[in-house]
Amino acid sequence: MFPFLKKQIDVCAAVASVTFKEWGAYRSHSMVSIFVGPVFFIVQYFIWTAVFESGAMPGMELEEVIRYFAAVALIGYLVMDFADWNLSMLVRTGKFLTFALRPLNHSFFALSQKVGHRILGFLVEFVPCYFIFMFIFKIDMRPAFFGWVLISISLAFLMNFYVNYCIGLASFWVVQSQGIRSVYELLGGIFSGALIPLVFFPLPLQKLQFFLPFQYTSYVPAMVFLGKYSLGGVEISIPVIVGIQALAVAVVFMLCKILNEFAMKHSTAVGA
């Protein structure tokens, strides 16, 4: 068991390190976030300040909303993923064949790539923006429960990856999965909580979110950061919601494994 784990960690570290160096050559692309993140935040700040001037919103105070949007922006840098696009491209161009021949599961390879990519994101996106929010905008960015936030963000990282990977797997059947990816992106934009806290949605839509993967990538870790979670008229303690998040990740992970099996059986390619 332990030699297997050690080997997996070594493989992950090697792939992550190469990905880090590869993307590090284009670090200025990632550094766009240092401008874009704070600008979007400024807009959100003034929108919600104006809205709260005219009356309260149900479920959150102004200070919480502002901290929420700052947390969502920062969490986005840690969990960002495009495994769907990558896998879709590999399938469409036939390059996936080269991965099928390697003594390494592609989903694990892609996950390791994401680890390296997001370590770069942590250094050139998360850290500068964190300091901008904390020391220039004077937003209190200290999490309520550091340990739980760390676990919740790690789960959000996995959730985002496995959902995207499932969508990428659709390419084995439809080849050009751009449409499916766009639809997911659209739904994710609405229901992840990145656009607006889910607690501001109508009650039936809030309840629906417990059965969809979207909230677990953004809303849950942001609320864990704030130290209180409520949705659909239900208040849930932080350990319980993180547990629910872990369960959701496990379900998506299993779904991904099953889909992967079917995809491998369905896959045909020559040459590449």
């Binding site: 104006a50 709260f52 449409g179 639809v183 934009g189 501001f200 109508p202």
Partner: peptide
């Protein structure tokens, strides 16, 4: 047609915040 529909869908995201704000009884002053 799908591209048109998806562009339209993304487009509807943008007033969504406004709709939710006003439906909650708040407003832009």
């Amino acid at each position: 047609l799908l591209s048109l529909a998806i562009t339209l869908g993304f487009n509807l995201l943008f007033p969504l915040v406004t709709i939710l704000i006003y439906s909650a009884g708040s407003s832009f002053p």
